[in-house]
Design a protein around this nucleic acid. Structure first.
Lengths: 245, 245
DNA sequence: CGCCAACTTGATAACATTCAATGTAGGTGG
DNA sequence: CCACCTACATTGAATGTTATCAAGTTGGCG
């Protein structure tokens, strides 16, 4: 079975090529902001829209990296595996995030849908050609990679040096900050991933994640709400605990 | 006191602007390979050469990121700190490595010389202007950032999911692979950093690093040699242990 | 309503840390 | 040139945080 369904493919809508991009609500968040409004049609020409159900794979580590993706709705997790099955999630990608960057022509991680997901898919070779004509696009890609690098360094600090409680607090703060950066309310935060996913992201076990969340609940710092929402009662306290203060 | 000494500054050698770059032995390893031989003078015009003694700082986390650097000799460590002093080293940069990438105009980590070091220093605003004229340079920067991102993800897997022994083996293998990629012999590897640095890179304590190295020595996998050299007796066995096999 | 997966909670164990002491090497001054 | 001093590394014993193993509990979905 194919790893994804193509809901819409370029060429099916010749009457309005700029349509899918021109009307895109999340354009400002991602690489597409590098294109002038009247050049968006060039992106629209090469983009394909992809939908995935929760738990479907977008691509696997080691496969040829023929496509780059842009999340337009939902959450995707990226992870690497050790031969015995140990797993490290390197990131949760949400609306506006870019994924699929690679070096040696193969994906360095597996991408799997956490929730139902919609993405824009760009064939790599076509995007490459476009970046040659649009230095701004190339610069935008560079800026996004640099941003991810900074986030990766923060995550290394977390994984290498923080306690379980600090890790969970950091995670919650990150979710809140993401929401704030997107102009959304900071609480409650949307936490659609399983305890097991959180554990594999933070270098813990599901049991420890569960216990620590219970601790924070008991301390009155958070409250769990239905459908994966978490009320943060004292964001500044969480921020402090995240840094070990 | 200034954080570095300027051994040579552009303008002092007007007779041979291409000189410092044209003769550079490590040019092929880094961004400079994006420039044609006859355009190297443009890089030479904006580059400054910097020397640091071991333990000197190049820049601090949070400072304005006015410069980008390229290591031409020696080893530099990059690290982040928690308020209480816990430290995570995010990378050891060696000859050919590029550092100083940042997002929000400030450095996201501190850079300190592990050994005596020589670097090329590029004023950010001048390099930015050059990338506008040289898309190849911009692409090269992007490629280097992408490479670092892949390395960062590997390090997350290490920090989150590997045992102390697997971490040390991974570290040794990484050192060997770096040497191989530079056309050097894979053993003995050069390991100039202290046990404490290794610990802060791998998310361990100095004691655990020391004990684990002793284990590997006892198992006959490695031998310590003078001045920070380590003989790898069975690289493939180390590679296996690094992956938990 | 019942089932299954996900989550929570408990008891025990292990790996790495912490605290402490000893050993070693490189650099300085007598 | 050697002794000393300091920083770094190694080794040992005890502790602790988190993992592991094992039940229970909850909640979503057919």
């Amino acid at each position: 079975m194919p790893p994804f369904d193509m809901a819409r493919q370029n060429g099916e809508l010749p009457a309005n090529l700029a349509g899918p991009c021109g009307a895109c609500a999340v354009r400002g968040l991602t690489i597409c902001s590098a294109m002038d409004a009247d050049d968006l049609s060039l992106l629209a020409e090469i983009v394909q829209i992809v939908r995935l159900d929760a738990h479907e794979n977008l691509f696997h580590e080691g496969e040829p990296a023929d496509h780059l993706f842009n999340v337009t709705s939902g959450t995707v997790k990226l992870f690497k595996l050790l031969p015995d099955g140990r797993r490290q999630i390197t990131g949760f990608m949400i609306t506006g995030d870019f994924l699929g960057l690679s070096v040696n022509e193969t994906y360095s991680y597996t991408a799997e849908a956490v929730t139902d997901v919609t993405l824009c898919r760009f064939p790599r070779h076509k995007l490459d050609r476009l970046t040659e004509q649009y230095p701004r696009l190339q610069r935008r890609l560079f800026a996004m990679a640099s941003n991810e690098l900074v986030a990766a360094q923060d995550q290394m600090l977390l994984l290498g040096r923080k306690s379980a409680r600090e890790k969970i607090c950091s995670f919650l703060v990150t979710l809140a900050d993401r929401a704030i950066r997107r102009g959304q309310i900071e609480s409650p935060v949307h936490m659609p991933m399983s305890r097991s996913d959180i554990a594999d992201y933070l270098g813990l076990t599901t049991e420890t994640v569960s216990r620590t969340i219970t601790q924070l609940k008991t301390a009155g710092l958070i409250q769990l709400q239905p459908s994966g929402r978490v009320q943060l009662n004292d964001l500044e306290a969480l921020r402090g605990e995240a840094e070990g203060i």
